[in-house]
Computed example of a mutant assay.
Amino acid sequence: MDPSLLIGMGLALVAVVASVILEGGHITDMFLLPPMILVFVGTFGVAMAGGIKRDVKALPSQLKRAATATAPDPSEAVETLVHLAGRARREGMLALEDEARSIEDDFLRRGLQMAIDGTDADDVAVILSAEVDTKRAADAAAAKLFNDMGGYAPTIGIIGTVLGLLHVLGQLASPDKLGTAIAGAFVATLWGVMSANVFWLPIGNRLKRLSQVECDHMEVVIEGILAIQAGASPRLVEQRLASLVPLAADGTKDAGGKTQDKAA
């Protein structure tokens, strides 16, 4: 599990709460039920109206995926593929059949099984690439729903504030109630802006980033399977796959346990 999303959102909420406390406010002032219902239910409603039933049904699972999914480690795939290339070169593709069953990566296992079954390399590439494209499209739809919510939420919050101010105007004859009424009116804008920038947009961006990493991982697997099927040497397979693995944050290659000097 990668806790980046939960930690990041938690830090943002702590910053908001700390700001309220340091300014002498009360946390309970933020939690007014009417504006919160308007913002959260209204945001979900308009996002649902702009999507399709399939996207909405996938929302809970995508939310869970954003919070718990771990990006695949390319070094593990490269190591596995290099090992398979060595054995295939020594013993032939059929020798990989037993080993293929024990591979946990479903995509790698299916692709390898097609190669073992003698499927033409072009067909393997087309089928696996189509899976990558399908996954990329599905992930983009899931991320779009959350990004749409991030776009709608501030506007829904403004609607809530306008409704609250209308209520304030009806209480002009009671000056002692105006302060509380005006503060309550702006709570809707607070939740609209905060929910967009603390919840929905980070979740959408997290899903897009996970999709990018997972699809890149699948592309590495495709190249590895095709190289194995072509009878490439383990060293060549390792070099070929290492060139597809993106640089880590420190400028080193995270592939097959190999690193590159940042000054090189």
Rank of each mutant, 00 (worst) to 15 (best):
L166K: 03
A153E: 04
Q171K: 03
S129C: 08
D148V: 06
V198I: 10
N197P: 03
L128G: 07
N147D: 06
D139N: 15
D133Y: 13
G184Q: 06
D133P: 13
L169F: 08
T134D: 14
A153M: 08
D133A: 10
V168E: 02
A138R: 14
A185P: 12
L145M: 08
V187F: 08
T180H: 11
H167N: 08
A173M: 13
G170I: 01
A196C: 12
N197K: 10
M194F: 08
G150D: 03
I182C: 07
G164C: 01
A140N: 15
G160T: 10
A130L: 05
G150L: 05
D133M: 12
G179Q: 05
V132F: 08
I158E: 05
F186Q: 06
L145V: 09
R136N: 05
T189R: 09
I182Y: 00
V198H: 00
N197W: 01
T189N: 10
A138I: 13
T161R: 07
L128V: 06
A142S: 13
I159N: 01
V162R: 00
V198A: 00
A196G: 10
V162L: 03
L169T: 01
F146P: 05
D176R: 02
A143E: 01
A183P: 07
G151I: 06
G150C: 04
D148P: 06
L169V: 01
A196R: 13
V187K: 07
V168M: 02
A196F: 09
A138P: 11
A141N: 15
S195R: 02
L165K: 00
I158H: 04
V162A: 06
G179H: 00
K135R: 14
L163D: 03
A183S: 11
